[in-house]
Write a protein that binds this DNA or RNA. Structure first.
Length: 255
DNA sequence: ATGACCTGACCATCAGGA
């Protein structure tokens, strides 16, 4: 089973690259973030063209997440409503036959740090922690998406630039580590730094300078990790016409 | 450097991203 996660920074703007991604990489499950479109029917019909079913949480202009999947996959949605109370930031699905839950998240950015936005980021992460804590008793976990957290200094090309950024604050890292301490494995952690960056700022053309940060993740329970066949940041999609500022991330599982 | 670039709103310029 191949799972891809991608913060597309607008579905409409990324349609040509999404088509390429779907046709080339053939994901079984495709988790997207930052759709920036309200129209759920539009999102669904876009992926229908590629024989993918889709479930989505949307809002106008901002945020929005979706999970598309091959038609023969048997799954059900479990809405974690507390994660979508204010903005559309989560879809969660269960594959009952595998006892696996897949949680797709667009974590709040949280900047600037002296505002309500940062408080809301930390609250949202605490809510996610509680949800996963209760799910992990019954299910294997695959948690993915744009976490908007730089967990360690080495996950940025120059951590000094992020000293006052919500992504690298101790509180943000603490909430990230609480997820890890639920016995979830950050599988990209052992991938060499320059191959594990997932975001390159449009401003000052960071991609060309290889100055990125690692903020998109797969966090897996140990059994799912044991089924991992392949893992890759699809960096080439950051180098095409009209790219997202995030790279897609891809994992193959022997399940 | 509270910058730069990109997107959606909507038509001039702002909010938001990270």
């Amino acid at each position: 089973m191949r799972v891809i996660s991608w913060n597309v920074n607008s579905l409409r703007a990324r349609e040509p690259l999404l088509e390429k991604l779907v046709l080339t990489e053939k994901p079984d499950i495709l988790c997207l973030q930052e759709l920036k479109i309200l129209d759920k029917d539009y999102v669904e019909s876009f992926f229908n063209k590629f024989s993918l079913k889709t479930l989505s949480e949307t809002q106008k202009s901002y945020n929005g997440v979706s999970i598309s999947y091959k038609e023969d996959i048997n799954l059900k949605e479990i809405p974690l409503k507390k994660l979508n109370l204010i903005q559309a930031r989560n879809n969660t699905i269960i594959l009952e036959n595998l006892k696996l839950v897949i949680i797709n998240c667009y974590f709040p950015n949280g900047n600037p740090i002296d505002t309500e936005k940062f408080i809301n980021k930390i609250e949202w992460m605490k809510t996610l922690f509680k949800e996963i804590k209760s799910l992990k008793d019954d299910y294997e976990i695959l948690l993915t998406g744009d976490f908007n957290v730089i967990p360690d200094d080495e996950d940025a090309y120059d951590i000094k630039k992020y000293k006052n950024d919500a992504l690298a604050q101790p509180q943000s890292r603490k909430e990230f580590n609480k997820l890890i301490n639920l016995d979830l494995i950050d599988v990209f952690k052992t991938v060499p730094k320059k191959q594990s960056y997932t975001f390159f700022d449009y401003k000052t053309y960071k991609f060309g300078k290889d100055e990125g940060i690692r903020i998109d993740f797969f966090l897996l329970s140990p059994f799912i990790k044991s089924k991992m066949l392949k893992l890759k940041v699809l960096k080439e999609y950051r180098d095409l016409d009209r790219p997202s500022d995030h790279c897609p991330i891809m994992i193959d599982l022997n399940i």
